[in-house]
Every structure is written in structure tokens, then in C-alpha cells.
């Protein structure tokens, strides 16, 4: 059974012009794999991730035939049941940890709280927290637990977020540009940690990013989104052989260290790209 199955997902925002569709009929499924969703700003990739957790703020609306999490349709759930899904079964990591951590609580207290919420008891919470911090390669865990979020660097903050999100042992992790705010060297480290945790625990991962090379290297499968639709789906390691002109255009517009060019190719947008129905992103 797939961990997540999304069928004909639409995310709509009413505006003064009429209804703006941020996501337009996206269908895909996620198994125990890493699924990359790539696209430029405004392509609807983040909205897709948020819609799965029903995190779209009103007046935005989520519509779909179904969004099934391990077989349960979350569109039929109450807000209360939804809260159990968020965090317990699906965790989400956002771009900037500064906005996801509580600034007036120590890091340790926050992780312990997350643990208590997940397991219903405080027993072993401390040991588990230390264990988790160790798993995200935080060496002096004792000191970090006493620290406040603002004392952490970006990379450290993001690793703490990952630790927190992993504590309830979710079956799916949604990571929305988890490393875009980080320096390259830290990026590698954070990715490596995520990589290891996801494979060890057999989780499903939805990795949302604008970085084609990164997704191609990090994921198993990729959905390419444009104007709210999935225009192409392919194996991540074959991304460089992608056929859709949009994907090709994006790839060619990147400057490359190993292949210098005098001019970069400029993407010529074809209105037809936003017309046809979404490609099904099921494996």
C-alpha cells in the first residue's frame, strides 16, 4: 500500500480577479521512497506539500478526489484527527528553522515536549532526546538542550528540527526546501543526516525543492511542476534525460562548473505547458 495517495488535488484561492488555482489537478502516490517535487516559485510545489497536511490557510481551499494517508482519507477527517496525523504520521520540515522553533523555550524542552506528546509519557524522554540529537550529529547534545533557538546556527537549527520531527517516528516526512537557507557545506551535512534517517527507518520522503541537481542526486523519483500542474515525472537519476521542454529549459539555464558556456540558455515559456492535464505521478 502506498503511504500517500493524492488524486486530482486542487488548491484554490479566491482573489479579486476570481479564483486563483495554485495547484491544478495533481495526482501522485508515494511509497517508501524519496519523491522530489521541483519547480520554480509559484509552481505550486509548496502548496502541494501543505495541502497533504491540510495546512492551507483560509480563504484557500483544498479539493481532491481523495488524499489518502496509509489508506485513510484526510479530507474526511476532523481537525482533531488531523492533528494526530500531523507530526505523528507525517512530519514537515520547513525552509527556515527560526520560524518553526519556539523562541522562548530551550531546545531540550521543545524536543522533550514533542516526545511526551508523541508517546504519552515523559519516561525516557530525556534519553530519547539525547539519542535523537546524537542521530542528527549534534555532538555536545547536553549543551544544545539547554540552549535557546536563537543561539543556534542555521544548520544546527535545521538539524534540531529534523530531530524533533523524527521523534514520533512518522511514516512520511515532507521537507520543503529544507536546505535552501543553508550554506553549501552545511547543506551536505544536513542532507546526509536526512538521507540516513529516511533509509534506516524506511520512511517515505517528499522533498520539495527548486534545485534540480540536488533533487536529481537525492531522490528516487521526481515530479516536475509548472503552473500548478505536474508536467513530467521521471526517475531522479534520469532527470538529465528529461524530455519536457520546460524541464530541459530549466536544466539548460543552470550555469555549470564542469561545462562552461558563453551564454546561458533562456527559458522560453510556452503557454501550452500549463494547458494539458497533469501527468500522473504514480510509481
Amino acid at each position: 500500500m502506498s503511504l500517500i495517495e493524492v488524486e486530482d488535488l486542487w488548491v484554490r484561492f479566491p482573489t479579486r480577479t476570481g479564483v486563483f488555482d495554485a495547484v491544478r489537478g495533481v495526482s501522485f502516490s508515494l511509497g517508501r521512497e524519496r519523491l522530489g517535487i521541483v519547480g520554480e516559485s509559484g509552481s505550486g510545489k509548496s502548496m502541494t506539500g501543505r495541502a497533504i497536511l491540510r495546512l492551507i490557510r483560509p480563504p484557500g481551499k483544498v479539493e481532491a478526489t481523495h488524499i489518502a494517508v496509509e489508506g485513510d482519507d484526510i479530507l474526511k477527517m476532523s481537525e482533531r484527527q488531523m492533528r494526530d496525523v500531523r507530526g505523528q504520521r507525517i512530519s514537515m520540515i520547513m525552509q527556515d528553522p527560526k520560524f518553526s522553533l519556539n523562541p522562548v523555550m530551550t531546545v531540550g524542552d521543545q524536543i522533550i515536549e514533542a516526545y511526551t506528546q508523541a508517546h504519552g509519557s515523559r519516561a525516557n524522554a530525556r534519553e530519547k532526546t539525547l539519542e535523537m540529537l546524537d542521530a542528527v550529529a549534534i555532538r555536545d547534545a547536553e549543551r544544545v538542550m539547554r540552549a535557546y533557538p536563537h543561539e543556534m546556527s542555521g544548520g544546527m537549527g535545521q538539524r534540531i528540527m529534523i530531530a524533533m520531527m523524527m521523534i514520533p517516528n512518522p511514516s512520511v516526512l515532507i521537507a520543503d526546501e529544507p536546505t535552501s537557507a543553508l550554506d553549501v557545506s552545511v547543506q551536505t551535512q544536513v542532507l546526509r543526516i536526512m538521507d540516513r534517517l529516511v533509509s534506516e527507518r524506511g520512511m517515505g520522503l517528499i522533498f520539495i525543492s527548486h534545485d534540480l541537481n540536488l533533487v536529481s542526486a537525492f531522490c528516487d523519483r521526481v515530479l516536475i511542476m509548472y503552473a500548478g500542474r505536474v508536467v513530467e515525472t521521471c526517475r531522479a537519476d534520469r532527470l538529465h534525460e528529461a524530455e519536457h521542454p520546460y524541464t530541459r529549459g530549466l536544466l539548460n539555464s543552470l550555469p555549470r562548473l564542469d561545462a562552461p558556456r558563453r551564454r546561458l540558455e533562456v527559458l522560453k515559456r510556452d503557454p501550452a505547458w500549463s494547458d494539458p492535464g497533469s501527468v500522473r505521478g504514480s510509481s
Binding site: 520554480e40 539555464s253 558563453r262 546561458l264 533562456v266 527559458l267
Partner: peptide, 14 residues
Amino acid sequence: LDVSVQAEILNLLT
């Protein structure tokens, strides 16, 4: 900026 826009700006600067 997005990568496709980045390409346009870098070309312009060149």
C-alpha cells in the same frame, strides 16, 4: 531569483 530568471539576468550582465 528562480534559475530561469537567473539565466536571463546573468546573460544581461554579460
